[in-house]
Design a protein around this nucleic acid. Sequence first.
DNA 1: ATGAAAGCGCTAACAC
DNA 2: GTGTTAGCGCTTTCAT
Lengths: 352, 352
Amino acid sequence: MPQSLVGCGEGVLDSGKTRNAKVTIRHVASDAGVSVAAVSKVLRNAYGVSEELRAKVMKSIEKLGYRPSTAARGMRGRTYSIGMLLVEMKNPFLPSVVEGVKAELRKAGYQTLIGVGDAKASIERSLIESMIDLQMDGLLLVAPRISGTVLSRYALQCPVAVVGHHEASAKTFDTVNSNDESGARSAVEALLGSGCKRVHMLSLPRTNEAHEVFALREAGYLAAMAEAGLSDHAHIWRVRERPNGPGDPVDVIFDRGELPDAVFCWSDIHAIELLNKAHERGIAVPDQLCVVGYDNTPVSAMPLIGLSSIEQHGEVMGRTAAKSLLSRLAGRTDPEHIVIEPSLVRRRSMRG
Amino acid sequence: MPQSLVGCGEGVLDSGKTRNAKVTIRHVASDAGVSVAAVSKVLRNAYGVSEELRAKVMKSIEKLGYRPSTAARGMRGRTYSIGMLLVEMKNPFLPSVVEGVKAELRKAGYQTLIGVGDAKASIERSLIESMIDLQMDGLLLVAPRISGTVLSRYALQCPVAVVGHHEASAKTFDTVNSNDESGARSAVEALLGSGCKRVHMLSLPRTNEAHEVFALREAGYLAAMAEAGLSDHAHIWRVRERPNGPGDPVDVIFDRGELPDAVFCWSDIHAIELLNKAHERGIAVPDQLCVVGYDNTPVSAMPLIGLSSIEQHGEVMGRTAAKSLLSRLAGRTDPEHIVIEPSLVRRRSMRG
DNA sequence: ATGAAAGCGCTAACAC
DNA sequence: GTGTTAGCGCTTTCAT
């Protein structure tokens, strides 16, 4: 006989005043007059429960407003939640990735909890560890700054899928990436095709990590310039992502030397900044200066902006990564490295 | 106060190729030759541990790369993580709030995990419940769509602070808001002061919730118009936040009747859309049409856009809400309802 | 100052 | 089918 009732008052829920005593599986069991195990089985749709019992249990669950504790559940089984790590919040490209991930995970019954890493490896690590310690069933990392070595260490503890971080040889986790090299190539080729010769690139300060997307975009840029026999005109400006001191980093392009014919930017963030600066200085776009960005961010599509940009299909990348993670959760162990082709969206900021 | 335990640093973790066997508190205890309770005390900086013992334990922790399981910890004590619910991801105002919240919580040793509600009450609820079930120590809700009644029910189960949701009479949770009415007022007054008479407002489709920020902004708008004796010229256009069919909702302003002198928009999202449409139609801003938005979003500050807007001080709101939540976690039970004064930022889109 | 032991809410063998 | 019973990894009395 079920007698293991702890000192938890009546099964009656709060009437509104005091903080809820949490309804546990035991309350449900006793209310339904069955064992705790039976309730657990109903919860998990496990094999071997009669329709009667299931009905009784469901009724009590409803009546008591019971919700299983994910935390407790996670100690033995799954939490059905996955942790998503975002580099930062302000890049307007990321929402589309999040959307894709959430949609796909939701279909599979998983919740998505997001942590924001502020583009700092140390924060990313503490976030990842928190997520693991919260017993998330899997990790979905978007453009993490931490190295592949560290990633694989985490991947040992918890299934991991990574977006926007080239690590095609990784054995313990999956990756989904845009073909950053070919994206850059098509941007530069289009620029060259429209008559530009001195095509520069605006990129980030160099890091020693070759897996960063902008490193591959630089490679694509250089390759395209070389193939056109214009290596001499190639130049990569490296500036911070956001101004963090006085003076705007993007200004260097205008302040030093002769204006290039066109600038290919590693990201719309820089490209839009550039468009605004050009406007302020009375430089005509695209007549005097052509610009192509990367990400096809919503702002780039605004008539007042009209920025040509490389569309990465963020939502597709998100969906794809989520699917990878799910299949890994389902048991796959051999790594999967998916590359998605980007495409150029032409707007006012370039000729042709 | 939680402790910042070193994660799996350079220390040798598992020597093998298989998935890590998790290092538990028991491994540490046995390695250090002390009891499990002792380790727990060290972990929590609890009273009554000798320096020797603490040192021994710390050494083992380091050596084994031990991290306490937040999930297990949550079953008795705190998880030191709080759940943040965002209405949606694409509103560029939200990152600043997130930043404020994270900064403040981080100082207090808490992790912030974010869920995105897609502006749907049902999703919000399931997210909130997940967060509670994951044993988050507190909830920080940003512009939730769910009603105050439901909110207070959750507040019974877990400390809650809410941003951007007017519920000044709530007894069980805290709120932090911008003074939306006065923000709207100052926008409209500035517009009227610059000579505009027929000032319209662009708002969202009406809901039956008076707690929504745009409802208060409407009130401020109407009040300002009334005080200027211009109620007859007042008109509120209600359009969807984003186009979800063919044709853009903002077009109504141009398509029906005479053009207003100025439009005050409940959000920069609408205002920027409006600016773009005006540009496309060759309507001169601010000569033929003045526009003021709300949120002072990064895009509004761009030279190519030049949108006047109401600055809500999102980061401050975030910080403030986080502080409220923390003080509630520390034991406060009487509610706190804080209102922050916004201010107008003048740019090209208005005269004067 | 330290440790043994009783849970926290749940899952999963294994009995019956 | 259904219930009993060990734990999961941790916190927290309460002895010692």
